[in-house]
Design a binder for these strands. Structure first.
Lengths: 102, 102
DNA sequence: ACTGAGGATGACCAATTGGTTATATAACTG
DNA sequence: CAGTTATATAACCAATTGGTCATCCTCAGT
């Protein structure tokens, strides 16, 4: 439901995604890494689930959370025109430096 | 002070940035486009200012707001490793389709 | 100096957020 | 079945958010 933008607003949630980028993680591992209470982490995971940014695999009592990066394309797409914008600025800077050595 | 991530969490603020991408805008113009009250828009503009995402040029009573895209590089940089991630998935899909025609 | 226009700020409000502790649920273990 | 482990949910709380209306400030024109 929520957009990826809102999900990324919180640094702990970005940290979770960063951790999931390397491999799947059980909740307890995320708790250790984030230094939050277990329910605190579970709440962030719920937000990420609702934004479809993670998947869950059940294995006995454990839930293995994995990264699901697709919704990030929304952010990437939104960013695209701006990217052109700032590379223009860098290009202009480079041209300026070339034309005005030292 | 606030990060670009937090500033982008609100759709109205993203809309403001989108409008500023085309050209500078006075506050009254943004008010018309967003359909919010003038103070409401001013509050969003303050947030964007504090995230260094906009610049203000004073011209008599008017404030001309302009885009300042640099802080978006933080988002772009964070996104970079994920970009590789989902293009991998697309590549895998393409390989799968090539190796299994129809 | 007065007036009006353009914006910012203050005060307020309901809803949401990010965290907590306590409790519930579900699955393995003896 | 009783106990333990892993996670989710409930209840609660203070702080923040996104919006409003009313007011203030600054500048231009008269």
């Amino acid at each position: 439901m929520a957009t990826a933008f809102a999900a990324l607003a919180d640094p702990h949630r970005r940290q979770i995604l960063d951790l999931l980028r390397a491999r799947e993680r059980a909740v307890s591992e995320l708790v250790d890494q984030l230094g939050l209470s277990q329910p605190g982490v579970s709440k962030h995971l719920r937000t990420l689930r609702e934004a479809d940014l993670v998947t869950v695999r059940h294995d006995a009592q454990r839930r293995w959370y994995g990264l699901c990066p697709e919704p990030l394309t929304e952010v990437d797409d939104w960013l695209a025109p701006y990217r052109a914008f700032w590379s223009d600025r860098l290009d202009a800077l480079e041209r300026h430096l070339e034309e005005n050595p030292d």
